[in-house]
Every structure is written in structure tokens, then in C-alpha cells.
């Protein structure tokens, strides 16, 4: 009985001493972690809608490399995954179908901002990419690179889906 009491006492005293001695490094580590998390949040940019002046990659062989969004055809805040935008070609291959400076239509096939799916889960991609289409919605290029969401089927862009290699 006495022995058990003694052991309890000693344990309490130990923990107290340990807490005292380890106090300052503990404080330091917490501050370090906090700074780390801050830097991470700065590193991970908050992703938003595709709006005017957003530069997107072109994920087909139409000849354009980069386009800048100048108008989203739907939505007040901007375009999301699967929406159509009007864009101007900023960079193009020298002998492609689409020339630099032209105004084109495009379907957003990849967006870094998450988009809700029909079952309630969400999907997001690595970058913002677009497939150039004409006014009727037919793709200008003949190939589509990279993954493409299956939601394009509901948006009546079946042609893009058939051209795509990976459907996510």
C-alpha cells in the first residue's frame, strides 16, 4: 500500500519536473510548426473561378498553346469545369490552325478549383486547361491530351470525350 503511494508520488513529481525542463523547447517547436503551416497555406493558392484574364493551357492539337479567358459564357463569377469560355490566343505554334491574337471559344476540361459531382463528392485537377471549339461546339483539333471529366457528357461535348485518352 505504502509502496504504491510512493510510486504515485514519484511519478507525479517526475512529470512535473519533466514539464518544467522541457517547457522552453516545447514552445519553440510549436512556433516552428505554426510558421510552417503558414508558409504552406501561402504555397497552396486558393483556387477560384476561371475569369477574365485567366491564362489556360490548351489541351488539344489546334495549334494554340496558351489562351487568356476574356469572357465566361455562363455564370456571374466566372467559368468552372465543363463551362464554355471566350478566349484570346496568347501563344501558338508557328504553323497551326489557330493563330496568335485570334478570339476563340473553348470548353474548360480541367480546372484547379473543385467542382461538385452529381453524387455530392468533389473533383479537382492539377491545372486549368481548355479544348478549343467552334461556335457549334465541335472541337477544332483532332486530339485531346490529358484527363477529362465525364461531366462533359451532360454538357453535350461527347466528341471531346471520345477523343480523350483518360476519363476521370
Amino acid at each position: 500500500m505504502a509502496a504504491s503511494f510512493a510510486s504515485r508520488c514519484s511519478r507525479v513529481s517526475r512529470s512535473l519536473f519533466g514539464g518544467l525542463s522541457n517547457n522552453s523547447p516545447g514552445l519553440f517547436t510549436t512556433s516552428h510548426e505554426m510558421t510552417c503551416s503558414n508558409s504552406f497555406s501561402q504555397l497552396q493558392q486558393q483556387r477560384t473561378f476561371i475569369q477574365m484574364r485567366t491564362v489556360l493551357k490548351v489541351a488539344d492539337n489546334s495549334g494554340a498553346k496558351k489562351v487568356m479567358c476574356i469572357q465566361a459564357l455562363k455564370g456571374k463569377k466566372g467559368a468552372r469545369l465543363g463551362d464554355t469560355i471566350v478566349a484570346s490566343v496568347k501563344e501558338a505554334h508557328p504553323n497551326g490552325k489557330v493563330k496568335k491574337g485570334k478570339v476563340v471559344y473553348g470548353v474548360v476540361v480541367r480546372a484547379a478549383m473543385q467542382r461538385g459531382r452529381c453524387d455530392g463528392s468533389e473533383v479537382k485537377f492539377d491545372d486549368n486547361a481548355v479544348v478549343l471549339v467552334d461556335k457549334q461546339g465541335q472541337p477544332i483539333g483532332t486530339r485531346v491530351f490529358g484527363p477529362v471529366p465525364h461531366e462533359l457528357r451532360q454538357k453535350k461535348h461527347v466528341k471531346i470525350l471520345t477523343l480523350a485518352g483518360h476519363i476521370a
Binding site: 480541367r110 473543385q114 453524387d119 455530392g120 463528392s121 468533389e122 473533383v123 479537382k124 485537377f125 492539377d126 491545372d127 490529358g146 484527363p147 471529366p149 485518352g165 483518360h166 476521370a168
Partner: peptide, 17 residues
């Protein structure tokens, strides 16, 4: 286990989900 309608999925550019 991820049940339908839960969570988020991230698709990398090499199509890994």
C-alpha cells in the same frame, strides 16, 4: 472506405486519381 458522395478526388495530369 470512401462512400459515394463523400470526400474529394484530385486528378493529376498523368490521370492518376
Amino acid at each position: 472506405t470512401v462512400y459515394p458522395g463523400h470526400g474529394i478526388q484530385f486528378v493529376r495530369n498523368d490521370a492518376k486519381i
